[in-house]
């Protein structure tokens, strides 16, 4: 239990830092802390495969992508989000409170049934589920990823063709 609270504090600090910091790189690093925190939650829940994949994908690839994107922006050190909003600050806070209220009450009133799967989910079972039970979504997702990659290559290549 103690571990959960410690890790939850770290994760929430990371999330807060990702939104409230002045320097965009610091925001990205807090986001990485947040992802690592989520990975530790997965470990606490016993889903270690998901935790490792979370680190591999989110920290290894998505955070890198975020950092590349920050590299290409101009004002890396700016004002905090709250200060930058100015007059609209109160609208933003109000809307945020409303969203938190709605989501919180929805989660609170939901009755989560006890987990129907007793025991730990091993990698082997995940793999079998992916190719036996959920084979069609798996193939559709891979087609989608291939389409995304080809689209990215086409977008990146277009400039060169135009120059020639």
């Amino acid at each position: 239990m103690l571990f959960f609270y410690l890790l939850a504090t770290l994760t929430v600090l990371g999330a807060l830092g990702a939104t409230l910091m002045k320097n965009l790189i610091h925001c990205a690093l807090c986001l990485i802390l947040f992802f690592l925190g989520i990975a530790t939650f997965y470990i606490l829940l016993g889903a270690e495969f998901i935790a490792a994949v979370q680190i591999l994908i989110y920290v290894g690839a998505v955070a890198t992508l975020v950092l590349f994107a920050i590299m290409l922006t101009q004002n890396v050190v700016g004002e905090t989000t709250l200060k930058g909003l100015g007059q609209n600050r109160w609208w933003a806070l109000g809307l945020t409170a409303a969203v938190i209220g709605i989501l919180g009450s929805a989660i609170h009133h939901q009755r989560f049934s006890a987990a129907s799967y007793a025991g730990r989910l091993t990698t082997q079972e995940i793999g079998q589920a992916l190719v036996v039970v959920y084979a069609l979504p798996f193939e559709v997702v891979s087609l989608l990823l291939t389409g995304a990659m080809i689209g990215a290559i086409v977008i990146a290549m277009e400039d060169r063709k135009k120059k020639q």
Partner: peptide
């Protein structure tokens, strides 16, 4: 003795990449 030892290895080694970027940027 993790059941996912190999995946853990590869996942953790990709964190080091980011730290190199941190060093270069800072």
């Amino acid at each position: 003795n993790l059941d996912i030892g190999l995946l853990f290895f590869i996942a953790v080694s990709s964190i080091g990449t980011l730290a190199i970027f941190m060093g270069g940027w800072a």
